[in-house]
Design a protein around this nucleic acid. Structure first.
Length: 696
RNA sequence: GGCCUCGUAGUUCAAUGGAUAGAACGAAAGUUUCCUAAACUUUAAAUACAGGUUCGAUUCCUGUCGAGGCUACCA
């Protein structure tokens, strides 16, 4: 394509050499600001030292040289150290003629760069429906993938589904205990929402256990404390454990609907520090399987920890510390951990339950993905990949990249790199999260031998995780490691702060989308713009406008930055919004439909008015904006760009008539320009995953 | 405590070290015999603070104050 900056670069380089004997490759042009005449601006300050002249003088002399020697430059002006260069209408027209009929203005040819990248996004957990945070992930991920495609790369869109682990078991357990065999069909609920309901249920029930445990335990503790346990003014681990086990028993009685309290006798025994009796009693009296597991679990936790407390204070701090242990070992926790063990052991009933409930979730997710308009070329499941990475760690251990700690765990020391020490294998030989990330990354490069880069669309709370991951891969000797990129996006915050699923402050994705469609419908009806549409077309239109508003709202913000979303203030449809841009597109299309004459033939010469010139230059900029947004992984650049273009066109549309223009050449040009504009708008919006309507 | 982000109009967002810091919403005022008024025009309104580097700093450096995140043998 015709490149103005390249032409100017060469001429200025020559001019500097001839006029001042300066050899410079550091010549950068910026767009001339609207308030000055000109197309491109050269800042002359960098050259004044070597030229030994004032900025104004350098500007004047360079300008003279360009006008004389470069035919595309027809005029210039100098303001302080700024040389504003004016290119000829002929230049802009020839550029315009080269793109006016293209349907991929600004785009490189598909897969022309020869580069293959995998972009991972979405990455949901299968225990709850998607929320606003996921929506930003989906939109940013999808859009960046499209932008990279527009830059000529081959992009594999991938999702890794977090379908296993303790949090998945929570919803399974809760459904099993309290679900009454509910299904999406029996309840009419979307599958992911049904499963999410039981994830919340688990948490509520667990909270009840905690509350009761705390109340009961504190009462007993106060009594024990008041009796000042003997033993040199100290309370032993053993005693704490017995205490904890008794609390555990109480919670069981609570869960069975028959809450009990510790008896005075029991408290006396605990307080006296004479725990012999209780220990003997524990077998028959209160050590069933669950309690036994609890006892052993707690024993392991406390091993090696010094938990002797001096008497003297009110004992509250001590209680809190002990209670932290108890909290992590309550009956529901034990049960859910047991379920995970069964899942890992392949227990049939558990696996079947897991398959069934995950199936519900996938059906739900598919609906949401379809509504949002995102898709994947590859789907990975953690249940298949969580084992990966262990051998790699063993290899790395042999090579001395990792080391074994005294407790048997394997770790890497990244402190010299300014990071931290990181465990990559537990002392029992099981993997941690990063282990499988190491494994899956390597696996993907094996699966796709052409792969050059992995991009992870994950929130910025994981910045540290990815720094560590990439550094480890680099140390393991994979040269693609430095090509890996964490597409880190900021959190979406509500006016009252961060979203917390446990506190019910999340904005549900399906609800949000539904509201957007409704608002689009209401607004369209209010404006009386429903004529000429049938039912299906209208539904389509509301979907286009509603999701366009939401997508644009989210994508216009730099992904790296956190953003605020206020659900109470619904998203605007006026001003710097998706619908504004969609509206402009529809308006152009309406004009084009109404044009009776054809306007295909290229013009040989024309003189532009200021707005026409501005619009052509805007279209010209699109290609470099697409490049820049690809280089910086930023859909926001595209959003801001298309808004500016649209605004400029609207101004033109307001000030000048297209169809009623009397000069035939001008009319033809304006139609061509309008068409190119609508194409550019459609292309830009397409990169954001936003459709543009023919009419609205 | 350590590490990493971020502080721009009332609010939500812009500004490869460059000219007089741009928009939108909200506020105030205006535009419709004219291709779609989801539009257009006008007004008021901001770089947290203090230093430094530079011809030039919202941008780079240092410090203070303020907000958020990370800091697990969790995922």
């Amino acid at each position: 394509m015709i490149n103005a900056q390249e032409i100017l670069f060469k001429s200025v380089q020559k001019a500097l050499k001839e006029l001042y004997s300066i050899d410079s490759t550091n010549i950068v042009f910026q767009k001339t600001r609207k308030e000055f005449e000109g197309d491109f601006t050269l800042v002359t300050f960098p050259f004044i030292k070597e030229a030994k002249k004032s900025p104004e003088q350098v500007g004047q002399e360079l300008g003279d040289y360009l006008v004389k020697n470069e035919k595309t430059v027809i005029a210039f002006n100098v303001v302080k150290g700024f040389l504003n260069i004016v290119l000829s209408d002929a230049f802009w027209l020839s550029y315009f003629n080269s793109v006016k009929d293209s349907s991929f203005i600004g785009f490189k040819k598909p897969e022309s760069s020869g580069r293959t990248v995998m972009l991972e996004y979405a990455s949901p957990n299968t225990n709850k429906p998607l929320h606003l945070g996921h929506v930003r992930n989906l939109l940013v991920g999808f859009s960046v993938a499209e932008i990279l495609k527009a830059n000529g790369h081959k992009v594999i869109k991938a999702s890794i589904v977090n379908d296993r682990g303790i949090h998945i078991c929570k919803s399974m357990l809760a459904w099993k205990k309290w679900g009454n065999n509910e299904t999406p069909v029996s309840t009419g609920m979307k599958g992911d929402h049904l499963v999410g309901k039981y994830y919340v249920k688990y948490d509520q029930e667990y909270k009840k256990e905690i509350d009761y445990a705390q109340k009961t335990a504190l009462q007993a503790w106060i009594k024990i404390w008041a009796k000042k346990p003997a033993k040199e003014g100290e309370i032993s681990n053993q005693m704490i454990m017995l205490f904890a086990v008794m609390i555990f028993k109480l919670i069981q009685s609570f869960d069975q609907g028959k809450p009990k309290q510790l008896t005075e006798v029991e408290i006396d025994k605990l307080a006296s520090g004479n725990v012999q009796d209780l220990e003997e009693e524990r077998e028959e009296e209160f050590m069933d399987d669950a309690a036994h597991m609890f006892y052993n679990g707690l024993k392991k936790e406390l091993e090696g920890k010094k938990l002797f407390y001096k008497i003297g204070t009110d004992g509250k701090k001590e209680f809190d510390e002990i209670f932290e242990f108890i909290k992590a070992k309550l009956p529901l926790v034990m049960e859910v951990q047991d379920m995970l063990r069964k899942w890992e052991a392949g227990d049939k009933e558990t696996v079947n339950l897991w398959k069934m409930m995950n199936g519900w979730v996938y059906e739900g997710f598919d609906v949401t993905y379809k509504t949002v308009g995102v898709d994947f070329d590859q789907t990975y499941y953690e249940s298949n990949t969580y084992i990966l990475g262990k051998e790699i760690v063993q290899d790395g251990l042999a090579k001395g990249i990792f080391y074994k700690k005294e407790n048997g765990s394997v770790a890497i020391d990244l402190r010299p790199e300014g990071l931290d020490e990181k465990v990559v294998l537990r002392s029992d030989g099981t993997s941690v999260y990063i282990t499988q990330d190491i494994g899956t990354a390597i696996e993907r490069f094996k699966q796709f031998p052409d792969l050059k880069q992995l991009i992870y669309t994950v929130g910025n709370e994981q910045d540290f995780h990815f720094k560590v991951l990439f550094k480890i891969l680099e140390k393991l000797g994979y040269d693609w490691a430095k090509e890996c990129y964490h597409l880190s996006y900021g959190m979406v915050e509500l006016p009252e702060g961060k979203m917390k699923s446990r506190e019910g402050t999340v904005v549900d994705a399906d609800d949000l989308l539904g509201e957007m469609f409704t608002t689009a419908e209401e607004t369209t009806k209010e404006l009386g713009k429903v004529e000429g549409f049938n039912e299906d077309e209208l539904k389509d239109l509301y979907h286009t406008i509603g999701s366009g508003a939401l997508k644009y709202f989210i994508l216009k913000v730099d992904p790296k930055k956190k953003m605020l979303f206020d659900p109470k203030e619904s998203i605007d449809f006026n001003g710097n919004t998706g619908p504004f841009i969609q509206y402009t597109h529809a308006r152009i299309k309406s004009v084009l439909r109404k044009s009776e004459s054809s306007f295909e033939a290229s013009l040989n010469s024309i003189s532009f008015n200021a707005l026409e010139r501005e619009i052509i230059k805007h279209i010209y900029d699109f290609e470099s904006v697409v490049e820049e947004s690809g280089n910086t992984y930023s859909p926001a650049l595209i959003a801001n760009y298309v808004y500016e273009l649209t605004k400029t066109f609207n101004k033109f549309y307001h000030d000048h008539s297209i169809l009623k223009e009397e000069n035939e050449d001008v009319k033809v040009f304006r139609l061509q320009m309008a068409k190119a504009c609508s194409q550019t708008i459609a292309n830009a919006m397409g990169l954001l995953g936003i459709k543009v309507p023919e009419k609205m």
